Simulated assay, not measured.
Amino acid sequence: MEKYITYVELFSRLYKEGKIDIKWLKNSSSFRVSKETEKEIEHIGVSREDFIKTAFEIVRVCQMLASGNIPKSIEQEKIRIITENFLTQEILEFINVHSHSKNDVIEGFDYDILTKRSEKDLSNVIAYTGVLNFIVSDVYGETEESNQKKVTIELSKMEINKLIDKLKDIYDMIESLEVSEGEKNDN
């Protein structure tokens, strides 16, 4: 079991560092490990095959724990190791959203900063804007690439501030609900 703990800890570290990309889908999940990460795994003396096998098991167990369907065939000790070393409440919630949402979910995003310039004098900047680029997908797709689309939104500084305020409000409401739920469960 010591080797299993080592692999779960390695998986957790690589995931937190963004070196493992997991796609949580409705009926399945997948993960990708870059060539660079594979070399890192081999460099520290871990069997690539054993690590990949354990990684598949970690992803499968997490998906089952998120859905509440845990077969008796999975060792309780392995579940304990995964939950202690990898599966945080945040990750569990993320899996639930990406596996069971009836709405599109964000798969990734980035941003650009644009300048608006005077048509008469291109050296004259009249405004700066932020562009948010989202990759969204329908989680009810059967494959990773199902129904993926790109959504691009351009925002003024005022709109960005309003969005930040709204996102903070949403975050605070969720935090408040979690605290209330936790207090109910403690009683």
Results as ranks from 00 to 15, higher is better:
residue 3 K to D: 15
residue 8 V to I: 07
residue 12 S to T: 07
residue 12 S to P: 10
residue 13 R to N: 07
residue 14 L to F: 09
residue 15 Y to V: 08
residue 15 Y to D: 07
residue 15 Y to W: 04
residue 16 K to V: 03
residue 22 I to W: 03
residue 30 S to D: 06
residue 31 F to K: 00
residue 33 V to N: 01
residue 33 V to C: 01
residue 34 S to Q: 00
residue 35 K to P: 13
residue 38 E to H: 03
residue 42 E to F: 06
residue 47 S to C: 00
residue 48 R to T: 13
residue 49 E to C: 08
residue 53 K to V: 09
residue 55 A to W: 07
residue 55 A to G: 07
residue 59 V to N: 03
residue 60 R to W: 02
residue 61 V to H: 02
residue 64 M to G: 08
residue 64 M to H: 13
residue 64 M to N: 10
residue 64 M to R: 08
residue 65 L to N: 13
residue 66 A to R: 08
residue 67 S to D: 11
residue 68 G to R: 00
residue 69 N to M: 06
residue 72 K to M: 10
residue 76 Q to Y: 14
residue 76 Q to P: 14
residue 76 Q to S: 09
residue 79 I to Q: 03
residue 81 I to L: 04
residue 83 T to G: 05
residue 85 N to S: 05
residue 86 F to E: 04
residue 87 L to C: 02
residue 92 L to Q: 07
residue 92 L to Y: 04
residue 93 E to M: 11
residue 97 V to R: 04
residue 97 V to W: 13
residue 97 V to P: 01
residue 99 S to G: 03
residue 103 N to E: 10
residue 104 D to V: 07
residue 104 D to Y: 13
residue 107 E to P: 05
residue 109 F to Q: 00
residue 110 D to R: 14
residue 111 Y to A: 11
residue 112 D to H: 12
residue 114 L to M: 14
residue 115 T to L: 13
residue 117 R to P: 13
residue 122 L to R: 04
residue 124 N to T: 00
residue 125 V to E: 11
residue 127 A to D: 13
residue 127 A to F: 04
residue 129 T to S: 10
residue 130 G to T: 14
residue 132 L to D: 02
residue 134 F to R: 00
residue 138 D to W: 10
residue 141 G to L: 05
residue 146 S to G: 12
residue 148 Q to R: 15
residue 153 I to M: 09
residue 154 E to N: 07
residue 156 S to C: 09
residue 161 N to P: 15
residue 162 K to T: 08
residue 164 I to P: 08
residue 164 I to V: 02
residue 167 L to A: 06
residue 169 D to F: 10
residue 170 I to S: 14
residue 170 I to C: 14
residue 170 I to H: 13
residue 171 Y to D: 12
residue 173 M to E: 14
residue 175 E to H: 14
residue 178 E to G: 14
residue 178 E to K: 10
residue 178 E to W: 10
residue 182 G to Q: 08
residue 182 G to K: 11
